[in-house]
Structure formats: structure tokens, C-alpha cells
Design a protein around this nucleic acid. Structure first.
Lengths: 341, 341
DNA sequence: ATGAAAGCGCTAACAG
DNA sequence: CTGTTAGCGCTTTCAT
């Protein structure tokens, strides 16, 4: 590894001058500038960004804390985050918590304020809100992404998506198609993150005068397999259901598979809707009708917000920014209910 | 941000002692040790890992260079890499090249030797082998992952998967089922990365005495959409094909969709096979028969290899490590060919 | 057992 | 224009 000093020596100048040449700062004569540049090329010198970060008091990475990058939703988000960060000269550090509190804490401690300049944390059922708040209190810029509890404001800046409305939209779509017997698959536990989507759904049903039976709701994990089980359970108990509302795309895919396994044609015999619109939604067959969350927009807003918090330092407010509204995307998994015979 | 110096001052000792306490090195009396620990907790002190890295001459991250983390294969690999790195005290830096040479070079320059301690690069059609080699020559530890050209050894240490054999295995599976009219969908151009898989396929066909017609092969991008187009083109030109061999899972999914669009039942009228076994393969319907690449094993080997290169420094050889053999995974997308009528 | 001092590679005043 | 000096936060001999 060649260092600034070596370059300086070879060029017969001091490190300050080389530094100036490299960053286009200060006044340097054409002549020495060229000489230095030549040496830099010759030696293949690359500045040690870590050293630079140290003296500038500005780490070069931003940490993205997710439960597991292998969950199909995160890569899409991570990609958008990375693109946005790169524009601002930051690098992306991926921290998988595996929903393990210890691992999450370890990452936050390690990363907080030294390795990373700030932390972007995805809101999951397992995210350690208190740890994030502690971290923020200790001066580390933190932004919570995909927050979905409109009326609860954690002591953190966050980017929220109106998932309550997403629930309303999905329900209204189903209702408008003529469904009255709808089952709900909620991809979290009763107190979990998806309750707001479920409430939106419930409110929309109520508004349409459709009776909501608790028995027609199943709680499950946010996975395809778990969604499939939930759908099977629901359809076995209530064979008259003509539609299934899922609070997330993954369980919705599971429902689609359950339908196939039961020999139910989608959408003529059963309709299924999801929320989020991950890439897979349009690749799956039947393609999934879902309510798209503004993923890229959220990523962009989150990065901008984090940068703002970094700039403002301790003075920054715990603002809650809401993205544009989720949008219905109609594909092939929903249609009119079968005629009663 | 509290610093070592502050802790030291509050504890009435010098930074050296605090450092020793924190790292369990050197001899420190019980008494001061406890005192220091108390202050550390009280102040919520967290060491600046960047500063530590600087003095230790060992950056704390490893860069993973991929075309885009949003490609469904990479997150699975990245997750395994992250888990393995964490065991060794490293953090994962994700670098999306977006198949853009400039972006790749920018990342390699930035990351090389300062921000990251080493580089894990995925072998893609677009990877800049020469840039990686230059980087390696300049002293940065680099390991190429998922190399698939058994007889060509780049001037780099690499972890290779025997994809030639994967091609053989997929072809033999199809042949054993009784297929003789097979189309090939190659997810790269003629000179691309997937040629080896294709060669394995061709050799297996030859060995079985099945005539191979060039017209029954299509080259496409490594995407679902591109695979769908290729399948449509192939089936339109050769309606008598009873099976489609795809060199990757993504195009195989596309072929599955094309079959559905044409009203062809899979697997009774058409069989489709892939290579890799990404998660989606068992989630898709029909579930995809494919030849599984040892993803996690590759990740583990790559990390270990990189760490070895880091340790050995310039002395390290450009070894090529081959993973265990890909394995056939039979699911529902392949079956016997229809009886001729 | 603890302190003093040097230095990792770089930047940022301030001099000259 | 260029050099000198100091210091980012930490680790590590070497003294004491």
C-alpha cells in the first residue's frame, strides 16, 4: 500500500501538497500538480479512505439494519438505498440481525458512530426500538424506515408508509368486485406490525356494511409457507370464502399456492390480494393483485432524512415523514366472485 | 461521541490503561479495571472502530461486488457471506456495479485496501476481470466467486463450481425421463458465462446419441422475461419439443410461464429444468426441477479463502478451489414426455 | 501495574 | 504557492 508520504517524497514535495492536488483544494502550480499526478499514477496510489474519514470525523458508510437480506423485500429496498447513498459518497454496510436481539445490539454498538456515520433501520416486528432510541440518544443518527403506526411516534426520525390506507385500498378493491365473504391473512401476530393494514381492511369492510367475523382471520409469519398454512386453515373452516386479503405479498403467494392445491381456480373461484408489490408479484402465476408500497421513494426519503439528521446533529427533530400513498396494482389474482348457485 | 481520552481522564488513568482494560490485554489491577469498566458503562463509551482499524492496519469490512443485490440469487449468497464474515469480525460492504464498468472501477478503487480489507467478486458476464487482476497486483486481497471455467485460470484465487457437470446432470435427468426433443435456453451470450453449462448439456446429449440441432438453442439474458421470450421463440419454431433445458433458474421460470401462456401443461406436455436452485425454485408453481449449486458452501469457502489470502499477503497463490458437485433436485416441472400419438 | 510517547495515513490551519 | 505543525482516536512498545 503506497501512502501519501511515499508519493510526496517521490515528488519532492510534502504530503500537504499532494493532498491538495488530490482534492483540488488550495493553490498548487500547474507544474507540481502534473508531477504529483504522474507519480500517483505510476505508483497506483489510492488514498486510505479510512484515514481520511478519521480526520474528517465522518465515517464513510451507512449501516442498513434488516432482519435478513435474503427476505425478498429487502434487496429491492437495499438496492435503492445503495444507489442513493452512492450519490452522496457513502457506502452501504449490510447488517443482518436474523431477528436476534443480541446480534442486532452487537451490530448497533459496533457500527454506531464509528464504523458507520448513521443507521437506517427497517421496521420489523422484532426491531429493538429501545436500542435504536438509546443509540440515537447517544448521538448516532438513526432513521427508522417503513414505520407504519401513524399515531404512535417513536422517539426517532422515521419514514412512514400509510399501510392503514393500503389495507383500505385492498379491501375496497375486493368489495367493489362484489366479494362479501372475505378471509384475512395477517402476516404478523395480533399486536404486530401489520395490525394497521388489518385495521384499514376492517374499517373498509365495516364501511361497506360487511360483517367481520374474527374467525375469518388468521395470523401467520411473513413467509410463503406460513401464508399457505393460514389459507388452508381458513378455507377448510370457511369453504364459502370467495376472497382472501393478505397483509403482505409473501403470505399472499402462499394463499395462491393453497388455492392451487385445493383445485380452486384463481380468480374465478377465489380472489387473493397482497400488499407491497415486491418484484415477485408480477412474476408469479397467477400474477398477484396487490397494493404497491413506494419502495424506492421510501429509500430515497430515508437516505435524505438520515443525511439531514447527520448535518443537523443533536438539533434534529424526530420528524415523521410520510411517503406518497400506496397504489392498487390489479393483476390476475382477483376477479368477481363466482355466481351463487 | 465519547473518546478513550475522556474515559481515561474520568478514571484518572491514561488511555493506554483503558485500552488494555477494554481488550483484556496487558496487566491491569482488578481495582482499576473495575473503575474503568464503570466509567465506560456510565459514559456509554464505544470504541471508534475506524481509528482502531487505522492503527491496526486492518480495515474492518469486506466488499462484496455484485451486479445488483436485487438479483434473486445474490441475497442468498450475501446472507451466507455476511454470516461467515461476522464470525471473523468483519462487516459486509455491498457494492452494486449495475453491470456498469465505471461504477465497478469506482468501487474497486475506493474500497481497495483502505475501506475494505478484501474483495469478494461475483463472477458475472460483465465482471471486469482485468480490473480485479490489477487490484490484486496492487496488493489487495481478491477472491473471485462462482467461477465456472474449469480450464481457464484467471490470475486470481477463485472458488469455482462445476457448472459443466450441472449441465450434464440436468441433461441426463431429462434424457432418463425419455426426452429426445429438447430445447436449450442459455442465459448468456454465446461466449458468456453459461457456455460451460451448455457444453455439459451438449456432451450429455451426444453421449446419449441424441442429435443436437443448433436451431434448438436460444441465448438470452439471465432474467425471467428474457427466458419467457426465448421459450416462446423456441416452442413456436419447434412445436415438437417435449423439454426445455435452461442454464439458470430465472430463465427457467420464464419458460414455465411461456408454457402456461401457451396452454401447455407442465410436466405432462412439457418439462423444464433449471440450474442453481434459488429459493424461488421451490416456491414457484409448478415447483422447478433444477440442479442445485452449493451456494452457502461457496460463500463459506470464498470467505475462508479471502481470509487466507489476507493472512499470507503477497505470498498467496492463485489457487482455484472447487466446491462439492451440484445436485439434482427433482420437483414438479419435469416428467416423462407425452406418448406419441 | 501504569504512564509517556510514538505513530497509523491523512487533513487543516497557519506560516513562510 | 508550498512547508510546518498539529491532531483525528486508537494501539503499542518501552520505561518507570
Amino acid at each position: 500500500m503506497t501512502t501519501l508520504a511515499e508519493v510526496a517524497q517521490r515528488a519532492g514535495v510534502t504530503t500537504a501538497t499532494v493532498s491538495n492536488v488530490l482534492r483540488g483544494k488550495g493553490r498548487v502550480s500547474e507544474e507540481t500538480r502534473d508531477r504529483v499526478r504522474a507519480i500517483v499514477n505510476e505508483l497506483g496510489y489510492r488514498p486510505n479512505l479510512n484515514a481520511r474519514a478519521l480526520v474528517e470525523g465522518r465515517p464513510l458508510t451507512i449501516a442498513l439494519v434488516v432482519s435478513s437480506i435474503a427476505n425478498p423485500f429487502y434487496p429491492e429496498f437495499a438496492e435503492a438505498v445503495e444507489a442513493e447513498l452512492r450519490k452522496h459518497g457513502y457506502f452501504l454496510l449490510v447488517c443482518n440481525t436474523n431477528d436476534n436481539p443480541l446480534q442486532e445490539k452487537a451490530y448497533l454498538d459496533a457500527v454506531g458512530g464509528s464504523l458507520a456515520h448513521g443507521v437506517l433501520a427497517m421496521h420489523t416486528d422484532h426491531v429493538q426500538l429501545d436500542e435504536l432510541i438509546t443509540l440515537r440518544r447517544s448521538g448516532v443518527p438513526v432513521v427508522l424506515c417503513m414505520w407504519e403506526k401513524p399515531d404512535e411516534h417513536p422517539e426517532l426520525p422515521c419514514v412512514a408508509v400509510n399501510f392503514y390506507q393500503a389495507g383500505v385500498i385492498a379491501a375496497e378493491h375486493l368489495i367493489k368486485l362484489g366479494h362479501t365473504r372475505i378471509g384475512a391473512i395477517v402476516g404478523s401476530d395480533k399486536a404486530g406490525k401489520h395490525v394497521w393494514r388489518y385495521r384499514g381492511y376492517c374499517d373498509a369492510l365495516k364501511k361497506a356494511g360487511i360483517k367481520l367475523r374474527a374467525a375469518e382471520t388468521r395470523y401467520c409469519d411473513d413467509t410463503i409457507d406460513s401464508g399457505r398454512n393460514a389459507a388452508h386453515s381458513l378455507l377448510a373452516a370457511h369453504p364459502d370464502l370467495t376472497a382472501l386479503f393478505a397483509t403482505n405479498d409473501l403470505p399472499a403467494f402462499g394463499a395462491l399456492q393453497a388455492a392451487a392445491e385445493l383445485g380452486l381456480d384463481v380468480p374465478t373461484q377465489l380472489s387473493v390480494s397482497g400488499i407491497t408489490d415486491i418484484q415477485l408479484a408480477h412474476q408469479f402465476r397467477p400474477a398477484l393483485t396487490t397494493v404497491a408500497a413506494p419502495t424506492a421513494e421510501t429509500a430515497k426519503m430515508a437516505v435524505e432524512m438520515l443525511l439531514k439528521v447527520i448535518q443537523e446533529g443533536a438539533a434534529s427533530k424526530n420528524e415523521v415523514l410520510v411517503t406518497s400513498c400506496p397504489q392498487l396494482v390489479v393483476r390476475n389474482s382477483t376477479g368477481r366472485p363466482p355466481h351463487k348457485s
